[in-house]
Nucleic acid binder design. Structure first.
Length: 637
RNA sequence: GCCGGUGUAGCUCAGUCGGUAGAGCGAGGCAUUCGUAAUGCCUAGGUCGUGGGUUCGAGUCCCAUCGCCGGCUCCA
């Protein structure tokens, strides 16, 4: 077979392993972790049977991290076996994750706790020090079954039995430890980089709640200690930004055990933030001729039967309520009500597109174990809208909607996105034409706007294709917020029509979209994105006024009234505290602008500004201050 | 819902071997009136998540239950 490497062709014998190959081409280095041939990754232990373009994978290549992490999972498994006994430890799967690895295991007679992690880590380091070669062996199915049966590795047997009949079955061996594995792996345990076991949690075998629950041990791994430290710092940073903590500290929201889990209580400051967000959204939507509506929180069961929710979504709905022989359900979505609004009169092609918007509060049953602060709740408000349009409007509507989404996200401080288009799945409703036109509009609009996107082929809902936008926050995490979905289902179910130019009835297209998604969740993302340091336009309190001594209180009130008259959210910190203490407290409360008022300011009618903003510094007149803060609010800086 | 952890003052946490609960911050009061990140003193505040049980005696041990935390699962 011919391997092409650095512009040269090498005639290499088939079945050669990477290690031998590297010797043959005179490239040996501990930095080389694997190779790829025509993009297929091999470790250095695997025999190669096909030629092509050879690339060396070094520690600098992203792919090498996967190899490292995979091997660390094995080393952890070996450590567990040595600590708890070969026969007692049953291995599940041990894949890599975004920044490390995990292994799902069952340990007979022992529950691994966080306290055990240190012991396991120590054993892992010991194994690494043994400098064990990691060897690959291929087995026949029979051999493999026999081997793992002897070892009582029930989960491995399950895996082997589910492999396709022509699959190559390989095991990797390091010292006494042998694990069923496809690879790739580092060649020797001594090459294992920096790692830390982070947590242990339960995980169903094969993700199936009817199967036994194994224990999943998570680890983080990188080639160098430095990278590991950086990652651990990121977790620290995320912890500092945790919206549950900041939400409490900044008095934005609370969740009361007595009120109920997953139900958000907006405290005055959080409510102010929410009102600002909602007012902003209303304005943005009205500019594009969206019509705002209000709809009830409950609807009769017949409504949910028509919409299909009772057959497809019931397990996520709060249970039925009976009133006067009728059954009602609390709404998990706003769609059926918006359908009712469309149907409230005969529609003409002349009034399309119709854009019905609502900040609609919905309730969904979420399992108790998944609730999480503002991010995962049982009651939330969607910035929801349904656009009813003609086929020829589809493109323009999608483009307009996307522009609005990017505009809004940008104003909230998000400029980096991952965009996904999900296309037609196997069991779909709607005509081929419906899907083509819709998918085409989604792709074309993104291209017109110069946005790159990925396609999740066949990942759409059965009722229509969609675009999901994930926003990147200040520390690099992605959050899915906006979604724009076609719905070919509801127009049929509710028998929606409009009268066309031809005086005949036609089916409208429905585009269902939310930009922030859930106001609750988006607020959580905002809190973490800004670490509680909101830009002035969003900050519940924009200005803290600190009179230095009581004799300055009168001037402070004067300034306060002037700000209040201009709709600037200010308050006077009139506590009997020293100025320094007040400055500290207001900094901790993350109030963006602090005005210190003393003799100088009172006599000159100025304010002394303390803020992080360059244009808002030092001593300026009140008018200047108001002008500058207005400018900053306007810029949403 | 499942696995594991956890629950002590408004918040963050200490509480040994089972012997009736403690700190800091915060809150209230008094004094201080101060120039860019913590002034001092005093005071109040707890059915130890809840309900059972063991015990002469339970914050501490056991059972149940609720909430929270980390995951899994789920997210037409």
């Amino acid at each position: 077979m011919i391997l092409e490497f650095e512009g040269q062709n090498y005639d290499i014998q088939e079945g050669i392993t990477g290690i031998e190959l590297l010797k043959a081409i005179n490239k040996t280095s501990n930095d080389i972790i694997g190779i790829s041939i025509d993009g297929i990754i091999y470790d250095l232990q695997t025999p190669i049977y096909h030629g092509g373009k050879l690339k060396l994978i070094t520690k600098q290549d992203k792919e090498s991290l996967d190899i490292l992490r995979h091997s660390l999972a094995h080393i952890m498994a070996q450590a567990l076996k040595e600590i708890y006994g070969d026969e007692k430890v049953h291995l599940g799967i041990g894949p890599t994750t975004e920044d490390g690895f995990f292994y799902d295991v069952e340990v007979e007679g022992h529950h691994i706790s966080e306290d055990d992690l240190k012991t396991i880590e120590d054993k892992m380091r010991e194994i690494i020090k043994r400098s064990l070669d990691i060897k690959r062996k291929e087995l026949s199915r029979e051999e493999a079954l026999k081997f793992f049966e002897n070892k009582k590795e029930v989960y491995k047997l399950d895996i082997i039995n589910s492999l396709p009949s022509d699959a190559k079955i390989s095991v990797y061996e390091q010292g006494d430890f042998v694990d069923l594995c496809r690879g790739p792996h580092i060649p020797n345990t001594a090459l294992a980089g920096a790692f830390k076991l982070s947590s242990v949690a339960g995980a169903y075998w094969r993700g199936d709640a009817s199967k036994p629950m194994l224990q999943r041990i998570y680890g983080i791994a990188f080639w160098t200690e430095k990278e590991l430290e950086e990652r651990l710092k990121l977790y620290e940073e995320a912890k500092k930004r945790d919206h549950r903590r900041l939400g409490k500290e900044l008095e934005l929201f609370t969740i009361d055990e007595q009120v109920g889990p997953g139900l958000i209580i907006w405290l005055p400051k959080g409510a102010t933030l929410r009102q600002i967000m909602e007012d902003y959204l209303r304005k943005k939507h009205k500019d594009l001729n969206y019509q705002f509506v209000y709809t009830p929180h409950v609807g009769k069961s017949t409504l949910w039967e028509t919409s299909g929710h009772l057959s497809y979504y019931k397990e996520n709905m709060f249970p039925e309520m009976k009133i006067e022989e009728e059954s009602y359900y609390v709404k998990p979505m706003n769609c059926p009500f918006h359908m009712a609004i469309y149907k409230s009169k005969i529609r003409s092609y002349k009034e399309l597109p119709i854009k019905i918007a609502e900040l609609g509060t919905v309730y969904r049953y979420e399992m108790s174990g998944v609730l999480h602060g503002l991010m995962r709740v049982r009651g939330f408000t969607q910035d929801d809208a349904h656009i009813f349009c003609k086929e020829e409007d589809v493109k323009d509507v999608i483009k307009e909607t996307l522009e609005l989404a990017f505009d809004v996200l940008k104003d909230f401080g998000f400029n980096d996105y991952q965009i996904f288009i999900s296309t037609k799945p196997k069991d779909a409703i709607g005509t081929e034409e419906n899907w083509q036109i819709s998918e085409g509009a989604l792709k074309e609009s993104l291209e017109t706007l110069g946005k790159t996107y990925e396609i999740d082929e066949g990942g759409g809902a059965f009722y229509g294709p969609k675009i999901d936008i994930k926003i990147k926050d200040a520390i690099g995490r992605f959050w899915q917020c906006s979604t724009i979905q076609f719905d070919f289902n509801l127009p049929e179910r509710f028998d929606l029509t409009y009268i066309g130019e031809d005086n005949k009835k036609h089916r409208p297209y429905i585009i269902h979209r939310a930009l922030l998604g859930s106001i609750e969740r988006f607020t959580g993302v905002l809190i973490e994105h800004y670490a509680g340091n909101f830009p002035i336009w969003l900050s519940p309190i924009q200005v803290a006024i600190i009179p230095i001594a009581d004799r300055h209180l009168e001037y402070a009130k004067e300034v306060f009234e002037l700000l209040k008259a201009k709709n600037i959210r200010a308050y006077i910190d009139d506590r009997a505290e020293r100025m320094n203490a007040k400055i500290r407290d207001n900094e901790l409360k993350k109030i963006p602008i602090i005005l210190v008022l003393g003799d100088k300011e009172a006599s000159n009618k100025t304010v002394s500004i303390r803020s992080k903003y360059e244009n808002l510094q030092g001593a300026v007149s009140i008018d200047d201050f108001i002008e500058k803060i207005y400018e900053t609010i306007q810029n949403k800086a």
